[in-house]
Amino acid sequence: MARQLARGMGSFFKDCDCARPTRCPHLYTIRFRDALGKQREEVGFGTQDDAVERLTQIYVEKKRTAPSVAEARRELGQMTVAEYAKQWRSRQRRVAEYSTGQRIDSALNAHINSRLGSRKLNSVTPIVVERFLDELEADGVGRGNQINILQTLKAILRDAYDKGAMADDPMKGVQKPEYVRKKVVIPTLAYLKQGLAVAGDDLALEIVMMAGCGLRNGEARAVNINNVVADDVYRVHEQIHGNTHRPAKLKHRKPGEFREVPLPRSVREAMERYAEKHGATAEGYLLRGPSGYYTETMERRRVRSLFEKLPVIDGMGMYSFRHYFASNALGSGIPITDVAEWMGHRSIEETYRTYRHLMPGSIAKAARVLDAGLWETA
Rank of each mutant, 00 (worst) to 15 (best):
Q4P: 01
L5Y: 08
R7M: 13
D15Q: 15
C16V: 15
D17M: 13
C18Q: 12
C18L: 13
C18T: 13
T22W: 11
T29G: 01
I30V: 13
R31H: 10
F32K: 02
D34F: 12
L36Y: 03
G44H: 10
F45Y: 15
T47V: 06
V52T: 15
T56K: 11
Y59N: 14
P67D: 11
A70Y: 09
G77Q: 06
T80D: 06
Y84I: 10
Y84L: 07
K86F: 04
K86I: 05
R91V: 11
V95R: 11
E97H: 08
Y98A: 15
Y98T: 15
Y98E: 11
D105Q: 07
S106V: 06
N113L: 04
N113Y: 07
R115K: 12
N122F: 15
P126F: 04
V128R: 01
V128P: 01
G140M: 05
G140Y: 03
Q146H: 03
N148G: 03
N148F: 01
I149H: 02
Q151K: 07
Q151V: 04
L153T: 05
D159F: 02
D159A: 06
A165D: 12
D168G: 04
K172V: 13
K176C: 06
R181K: 05
I186K: 01
A190L: 11
K193R: 14
Q194S: 09
G200I: 10
L203I: 06
M210Q: 11
M210G: 02
A211V: 05
G212W: 07
C213Q: 03
N217V: 10
E219H: 02
A222F: 10
I225T: 01
I225W: 01
I225G: 00
V228A: 04
V233G: 05
V236D: 04
T244W: 02
P247H: 04
P247D: 12
K254L: 14
K254C: 00
E257R: 00
F258D: 09
P262H: 10
P264R: 05
Y274S: 06
E276N: 10
K277I: 11
T281G: 15
A282M: 09
E283D: 14
G289K: 02
P290S: 12
P290M: 10
G292T: 04
Y294F: 15
R300L: 14
R304Y: 14
L306T: 12
K309M: 12
L310C: 08
I313D: 03
M318K: 14
S320V: 08
Y324R: 08
A329C: 15
L330F: 14
L330K: 08
G333P: 04
I334S: 03
P335V: 12
I336R: 14
V339R: 08
V339C: 08
E341D: 15
W342D: 06
R346L: 08
S347L: 03
E349G: 12
E349F: 09
E350D: 14
T354I: 05
Y355C: 00
P360I: 07
V369Q: 10
G373C: 03
W375C: 05
A378P: 04
